[in-house]
């Protein structure tokens, strides 16, 4: 509960300060504060990103994961994310990427409100825990090499 109030406040301050069109401003929106205050673990983050039932990332994204077959092609490659974006920008996209692009297909990984017809066993649960999101972010910021697309 406390955390969701905290997030709501963050989003309020965010939307108040980001009136210009989302597309051109996409790079400037960010959630700079850690969700947990505990540093993420990049190795755990990588495991979540490639895990099909949990992270689901490779359903849509590809990335520098040579051992993973069948990466999706619905989203930009994750290669070089760390060169293109700050930790806070990645965090916002993980928490709820509709804040950046209202029409995005990317699922909101840390949101339970405003979702319709959620199956009973997933109701009121976030896709990832706060610490798992920090782990994923800690991994994505290490993806600096933009040549691996």
């Amino acid at each position: 509960m406390r955390r969701s109030i905290f997030l709501t406040l963050l989003f309020l301050s965010l939307s108040a300060s980001s009136q210009p069109p989302m597309s051109s401003e996409a790079g400037t929106q960010s959630l700079p504060l850690s969700l947990t205050g505990v540093a993420g673990d990049p190795a755990k983050g990588r495991a979540i990103v490639v895990e099909r039932q949990k992270g689901l990332c490779l359903l849509c994204h590809s990335g520098p994961f040579p051992e993973e077959r069948f990466q999706g092609d619905l989203a930009p490659s994750l290669a070089g994310t760390g060169s293109r974006m700050s930790e806070g920008e990645i965090r916002l996209r993980m928490v709820d990427s509709t804040k950046v692009n209202e029409k995005t297909i990317m699922p909101p990984y840390y949101k339970t409100e405003g979702l319709e017809r959620v199956a009973a066993n997933y109701k009121a649960k976030t896709l990832l825990s706060a610490q798992e999101i920090e782990d994923v972010i800690a991994f994505l910021v290490t993806l600096k090499d933009d040549t691996q697309k």
């Binding site: 490779l58 619905l74 959620v118 997933y122």
Partner: peptide
């Protein structure tokens, strides 16, 4: 709909022809 917040249209109109995994 759902925890993943997808609509049918997002996959079958906007992304038809693409690959989900």
């Amino acid at each position: 709909m759902g925890q993943l917040n997808f609509s049918c249209a997002q996959c079958h109109d906007d992304n038809a022809g693409g690959h989900l995994g």
